[in-house]
Computed example of a mutant assay.
Amino acid sequence: MLKKTVMSLLCLSLAVPALSFAETATHAVKPLTPHQERMKTCNADAKGKKGEERKTFMKSCLKGEVAVPAAKAPEAKKVKEIKVEKPKTEKKLNSQQMRMKTCNADAKGKKGAERKTFMKSCLSNK
């Protein structure tokens, strides 16, 4: 009986790492998200930049801005940044979001407790 228990534990100890490896392998197949793709591209483009220059470049690149490095444009001493418009997707707002949008617009100019009181009463009116 002791031999069977020892053998069972031995087999189980060998099976657990194999299962965790199989689980890890399935996770590695996931495609990158759009943000991860952008990070990968921007990181590759930032090769050779260091410190503040890299930080500035990465910030503008991740926002979707196109930057022309000074090395490629000899007439420019600094990086030229051109803002690229992102396509706006129209989202349908639900009733709560519409009410929030309307109340927020009506609350312009109000601050602090006055705004809080107004928003509470405005959002509770159905």
Rank of each mutant, 00 (worst) to 15 (best):
K55L: 11
K111N: 05
K49P: 00
K78T: 05
K92G: 06
V29G: 00
R99F: 06
P87A: 10
K78E: 13
E85W: 02
K91E: 07
P69M: 11
S20G: 07
K78I: 04
T89I: 12
Q96T: 13
P69A: 07
S95E: 14
R115H: 03
R99E: 03
L10D: 10
A73P: 02
P69V: 03
K110E: 04
T89R: 01
P17T: 00
E90K: 14
M39W: 01
K108Y: 01
K77A: 11
N94F: 09
G112F: 09
L12V: 06
K116M: 11
G109F: 14
A70Y: 00
G64K: 07
C61W: 01
E81C: 11
M39Y: 01
Q96N: 13
K101N: 10
K72T: 07
P74Q: 01
E52S: 12
A113D: 13
R54C: 06
V66I: 15
D106L: 13
F118R: 03
L9K: 06
N94C: 10
K50G: 01
V66T: 15
V66H: 14
C42T: 04
A46N: 05
S95H: 12
N104C: 04
M119T: 02
N43L: 06
R54M: 11
E65V: 05
Q36I: 03
K111M: 13
K80Q: 09
K108A: 13
P69S: 12
L19W: 11
E65W: 15
A70P: 04
